[in-house]
Every structure is written in C-alpha cells, then in structure tokens.
Amino acid sequence: MCLPGHQKLTLTQGDALIVVDVQNDFLPSGSLAVPQGDEVVPALNRYLTAFIRRGLPIIVTRDWHPPNHCSFQPYGGPWPPHCVAGSEGAAFAPALELPVSSILITLKGTQPEQDAYSAFDGTELDARLRAQGVGRLFVGGLATDYCVLCTVKDGLKAGYAVVLLQDAIRAVNVRPGDGERAEAEMIRQGAIPIRLEMLAA
C-alpha cells in the first residue's frame, strides 16, 4: 500500500516513532558497520523533531549484548562482537538528537543464549505501546534487512499499522540486494513506505 498521488500523511494521537539501533558499532567506523549507516541520522532527527513537536511517543531501541552473546562469531554466531552492554560501541550515535526526557529506551539481545533482531523480541515494547494507546508505528534506523525488517514484521503481526521511513534506513547487504528485498517484503506485508516530505506540516 502506498499513499495515493500527493496525499500527505498526518501525525496524530496513537502514533509512535521507533528508532532502531542507531548505535556506534553500526556506523561506518564501527565493528559491524552498515554501509552509509550514518546517513540515517539527519533524516531521523527531522522525524524526531516532528514527533517531539506533537508530543507523541518516541521509542529508541539498542542492542545491549553480553560479551559472550550467541550472535558473536567466537560463540558460533554470524557477526563480529558488537554493541556490548556499556561499551562505546553500544552508545547511540552522537549526532542523533534524542530528547532524553521524553523517550523510552528498549534494550534487546541482553541474554547470552538468545538473539533478538526485533524490538518486540523478549522486550516489554508491546505492553508499553498499548499502555500509551499506540496503534501506528513509524519505524526507521539500522539495519533495513535485519532489525528494521524484524521489528516491522512483528509490529504488523501484533496488529499495529506500520509506516516505513524509507529515507531513514540503510542495509547491511551481506548479499547484494538484501536491503531492497527486505523493503519489498515489508511493503508486501502491509507497511506503508514514506519519506519526510510526505508528512503533513
């Protein structure tokens, strides 16, 4: 589903912004760098401004792994060690303009034996959203083909309307085209793709 013509999408009560894993280890100099991952930051800052201006909920997720996490290559996983709890690599991107007083932080992947790509996996995110009357999620961040993909799919499964912020996502692309395939899958499952200029002022 796409927005027809030049129709604008208006933010309203019941909307929430989910910023997925914009952490140092996923930026170009990080241990698990997402190509052009830093490019999501300026776009996300503009979405953050729009949500702050309307007093709408903002959820920021972060990988928060123990040093022996199962996703790490030394322990049989596919990835180099990244986003170890309390490390500089796990910190949010410095240029990300987070309103500390008004965000909810969701930690994921905190157990050594359990991986968690989705912000809903092993967290209280669903309960938090429902407690605030949220029915529509605006999702951006890193990376398109893993944590964004899984968060969007789980959000749709849980019954939320989901809006995919196409100008605020970037892909790992372990295989060429993974990001494009992930975007197509999210849209096929019901996510609405938008860019910032499609938001009503």
Rank of each mutant, 00 (worst) to 15 (best):
E88G: 14
V134E: 02
C83S: 15
V134D: 03
T123R: 02
L107M: 09
S87I: 13
D121C: 11
D126Q: 11
T106F: 03
L125H: 03
T123D: 04
A90K: 01
L98D: 05
S101R: 15
A131W: 07
A131I: 09
L107G: 01
R130H: 13
A90W: 00
L129V: 08
P99R: 06
S118D: 01
S118E: 01
S118V: 02
R130C: 11
F92V: 06
T123K: 02
E88M: 12
A90P: 10
S101G: 15
G122F: 04
A119C: 10
A119I: 03
D126M: 05
S118W: 00
A85L: 03
D121Q: 13
F92N: 11
Q132D: 14
D126K: 12
T106M: 08
S87V: 12
A131S: 15
A85R: 04
V139K: 04
R136M: 09
T123Y: 03
T110N: 01
K108Q: 04
D115E: 15
G109H: 00
A85Y: 00
E97S: 11
T110F: 01
F138N: 10
R130E: 08
G140Y: 08
Y117I: 01
E113A: 08
Q114R: 15
K108R: 12
A93M: 05
G133R: 10
A93F: 03
G122R: 02
S101T: 14
Y117C: 10
R128V: 10
E113P: 09
V84A: 02
T106Q: 08
